[in-house]
Amino acid sequence: MLAFVIQRVAQSVLVLLVVGLVAFSMFRFVGDPIDNMLGQERTQADIDRLRTTLGLDQPFVVQYVKFLGGAVQGNFGVSYRQGRPVSDILMERAPATLELAAVSGFLAISIGIGLGVFTAIRRDGWAANTIMSLSLIGVSLPTFLIGILLIYLFSVELGWLPSFGRGDTVRIGGWTTGFLTESGLKALILPSITLGLYQMTLIMRLVRSEMLEVLRQDYIRFARARGLRDRAVNFRHALKNTLVPVITVTGLQLGSIIAFAIITETVFQWPGVGLLFINAIQFVDIPVMAAYLMLISVMFVGINLIVDLLYFSIDPRLRADRTKAH
């Protein structure tokens, strides 16, 4: 198992190097940031001075190695637009995105698995059929439309919930949280539903189809034939056997919850890294874009690594080689 972990970590590093190359290429190929940073009244001397300060006059390879060296230490350079270190800006913005993603992910997983199990067990009931029909909406409507509809209903018409922003936040160390104030919690509701709805319906439909498959298996019939209670059969025996495929998809979906927070953050003007990224694109703020790209890829790679390790804890058959080794 240790060999497996080392192998996976090595693969992850390779993926990150490639992403790093792509991120860095943006510095070279996406316009000239100097144009945006200096106004109309620039001189050639100004341009040269700034180019040297930012290290843009050095050869490609040197710049790439410097970029990687900085990235490993969490140093992504200075934002062209704000003139502050990118890592500081990201640290400021990250709590908003992570809190939003955590709430969305929690909603998606808990409600998704719960409804998936329910619709599989009561497969022909009217409630299950209704839920399945409604879930088509979640799968097929685009995120921004759901966000706008929710804003229209709950903010504009009913006036119950705020339509944008994070509400009041409390600062704990370097972390700002919206969990501790009423307005912060209220502000979380609509964006987290918007962000998590697609994932929730996807997980639900996946859990349902996996459950239906597992419920047909002999060991489920045998569990029933031994007189186990329905609850034990459904959750202990059936649900656990659906988890490997469910975790695979859920892991990837959690990654995309963070990555696709861009859309939700734009709709709700949520002050997270996604909104930061959109603004960075508008201003060709390449260090911010590169850092965002790296951040997202680290998260995806990290989640995938965790998913692989979770397989081991769930399915003993995968641990077979380790058992023999001892």
Binding site: D218, Y219, R221, H237, K240
Partner: peptide, 10 residues
């Protein structure tokens, strides 16, 4: 079939 009548994860 004894290969399929036991729950593989327990």
């Amino acid at each position: 079939d004894p290969l399929t009548s036991l729950n593989p994860l327990l």
